[in-house]
Design a protein around this nucleic acid. Sequence first.
DNA 1: TGTACATCAGTGAACGCGCGTTCACTGATGTAC
DNA 2: TGTACATCAGTGAACGCGCGTTCACTGATGTAC
Lengths: 219, 219
Amino acid sequence: MTVDGVAGRAATGRRVTGRRARTRANLLRAAFSVFAAKGFGHVSIEEVCEAAGYTRGAFYSNFAGLDELFFALYAERAELIAEQVSSALALDGPDLDVPAAVDRVTEVLLLDRDWLLVKTDFLVHAARDPEVSRSLLEHRARLRRAVADRLARARGHTELPGVLGTAEDAAHAVVAAYDGVTVQLLLDGDVAGARAWLKQLLTALLTDGSTEPAAHRRG
Amino acid sequence: MTVDGVAGRAATGRRVTGRRARTRANLLRAAFSVFAAKGFGHVSIEEVCEAAGYTRGAFYSNFAGLDELFFALYAERAELIAEQVSSALALDGPDLDVPAAVDRVTEVLLLDRDWLLVKTDFLVHAARDPEVSRSLLEHRARLRRAVADRLARARGHTELPGVLGTAEDAAHAVVAAYDGVTVQLLLDGDVAGARAWLKQLLTALLTDGSTEPAAHRRG
DNA sequence: TGTACATCAGTGAACGCGCGTTCACTGATGTAC
DNA sequence: TGTACATCAGTGAACGCGCGTTCACTGATGTAC
């Protein structure tokens, strides 16, 4: 038994029961679908509640407003993605197999178009609010660090080309390539093509070009 | 004198007077500022009209709704940018000076953060509407073609690295790098840093890495 | 060039809907013994 | 384990604001002669 009793107690002193946690999770899950389908700017609280099967009162019992829910949604998913990327990079032994690692990371990053849609909505939001953009920048920094660490551990095996000399620069370029391919994917909806194209780009950025991979063609 | 009389006549048969054209331009100009400042999803027709100094009736006399105005706004600016990029690429003689061309194109593409904000709003819109995305894809194809043509004309002078063998691939990579750097710029607001970083990325993509440029550092 | 006229662009008031926000209430959930 | 009780989560109705949309009207603009 905890001091606070079986159900636990949040920082506010409010008792957090199972029911409450379930409702919150249901609202978040439903909101994700609605945001992905219609875009943050075109979604009402009413729609989220309807999709989740609650009344608007339930919403206000759990969130101060749409912005807060949107932020919580982003934080939750971003955390998940960051963990998956770290896992994908940790799979190799001490030696880095660049093509294999590129494949694994690409699969994780371009797994879910809905997430890319929501993330881009969030970007648009962040671009006008320093508070929000800080959170997004931290997420990106975290991804970058994971990539840079992995590259640094493997230096000597695969030398980076001259223009992107440091592992930090290379990791930065990886994220930029990811963002660039995301835009293309959002427009043409071709997930398989986007993955092939991202692999090709990452290979171009991380190798000196002397090793020609099997050509992936885009649709 | 035209057959239609001094004032001209639109396809609908409606007489297009100077006054009407001016009002439309004023609404578009004001809308651009408002969209850039608040984001498409948070803008009302009322706000646009107030910013432009008209009543809502004037708005409906010129546009069917916010979407139509937004689309017109995008088309107008995209056309402008496409022309500027073409000009920037046409400046060299028959030989291509890669670093100089990269510099000029970078200046044009990352000139105006407000435009990048509006363009990203438009992307979010397009990602959920094939009709709209077609227009954005066409704009991108146009930029790509301009770059690819320039590269193709210059082949032999500057050999592309192996992984991005064709001029089309290289042009595609240029656009992806532009999009990637745009995201970074939207988040940190550092225009100068973004330009330096885009130059570095483009150099890495378009050269074989043997030519080390003066190192640009990001903020 | 000037005037009389027809048409059109933009006005501003009015209507009503969608939805954000609140709140008294109920029954679900966890607690104490 | 079972029961009585207290508290809290979610309900659903109500209120009212913001704003999209319409429209009869006016005065600005272009046309005819």
